[in-house]
């Protein structure tokens, strides 16, 4: 197991180098000038000053080498647009917020989604199943900005149940965005759990357990649920990565100071260093998310443990 982990960790280095290279080259391909934010043309002298300041006219391999050097010493460089902040500052002040929001959303998705799926599977093709799947399908189909807008309109404006329309300050302000962001994964989990659970219920070992006369609760709790969760864990890794790196839409609608917005705003502002820094952050999270999932497999399914040593 340790060997496996070390090998996987070493693999992250070439992966990261490639991620940096591809982002770096692609960012240079899309046209646009980070220093021209409005229709005002930038006078040549000022453009030259800025290019010099941020080394944008150096040969690309030099820029790449300098950047890689920075990354491996944990310095992601200065932002070209937010002039008093470095990319490290941006990550430091906004990533924890997205992490918190993502964690709540994920907890909501698990707590609601998994039982919903279990319930639907156990009462398959009965009204409970239909209602649960209606909720899940709605969550799957309705875009998050609509969920967010509806939640705000009804709970914060119309009925005013004590939650604010936006912001990320009090615990009340964290409820609606967490639900809005967790709605899609919730629906996803519910559908996934229902599907795998129905499949597991057909398995021979479940029939055997039943034949042995085990109690239904024990069969479902120990055998069925545990085995049904493997696909959920598989899906959870990347999903967790996506959720904790923030959501542009949810963070914008709720005016939350998270990092998700920067994935989009830095690209449209051509803030090269921010885009690259965030891509690396995302890559690292996905790499470690998957590693974590692989380790978790071992606990859920002993068969995978042997194959890896």
């Amino acid at each position: 197991m340790t060997k496996f982990i070390i090998r996987r960790l070493l693999w992250t280095i070439p992966v990261l180098l490639l991620v940096i290279l591809f982002t770096f080259l692609m960012m240079r391909q899309i046209k646009g000038n980070p220093f021209r934010k409005t229709e005002r043309a930038v006078p040549a002298a000022i453009q030259a000053n800025l290019d010099r300041k941020f080394h944008l006219k150096d040969p690309w391999y030099e820029q790449y080498a300098n950047y890689v050097k920075g990354v491996f010493s944990f310095d992601l460089g200065p932002s070209l647009v937010l002039r008093n902040q470095s990319v490290n500052d941006i990550v430091k002040s906004h990533f924890p917020v997205s992490l918190e929001l993502g964690a709540y959303a994920f907890i909501f998705a698990i707590i609601v989604g998994v039982p919903l799926g279990v319930l639907a599977a156990l009462r398959a093709n009965k009204p409970t199943d239909y209602i649960a799947m209606l909720v899940a399908n709605a969550g799957f189909a309705v875009p998050s900005f609509l969920v967010a807008t509806l939640l705000i309109y009804y709970f914060a404006v119309k009925w005013d149940v004590g939650v604010p329309t936006s912001g990320w300050t009090t615990w009340q302000s964290k409820i609606l965005p967490s639900i809005a962001l967790g709605f899609f994964p919730m629906a996803y989990f519910a559908r996934l759990v229902r599907g795998t659970m129905l499949e597991t219920l057909q398995q021979d070992y479940v029939r055997t357990a039943r034949a042995k006369g085990l109690r239904r609760q024990r069969i479902v709790g120990l055998h069925v649920l545990r085995n049904s969760l493997i696909p959920v864990v598989t899906a959870a890794g990347p999903l967790l990565g996506a959720v904790i790196t923030g959501s542009f839409i949810i963070e914008t609608i709720f005016a939350i100071p998270g990092i998700g917005r920067y994935y989009v705003s830095s690209v449209s502002a051509r803030d090269y260093s921010v885009t690259m820094g965030l891509t690396i952050l995302y890559a690292v999270i996905v790499i470690f998310g998957n590693l974590f999932v692989d380790i978790l497999y071992g606990f859920l399914d002993p068969r995978t443990r042997e194959q890896r040593t």
Partner: peptide, 10 residues
């Protein structure tokens, strides 16, 4: 969001 915050008195 700004309009809703205004209408909610925030």
């Amino acid at each position: 969001t700004a309009v809703q915050s205004f209408e909610a008195g925030e």
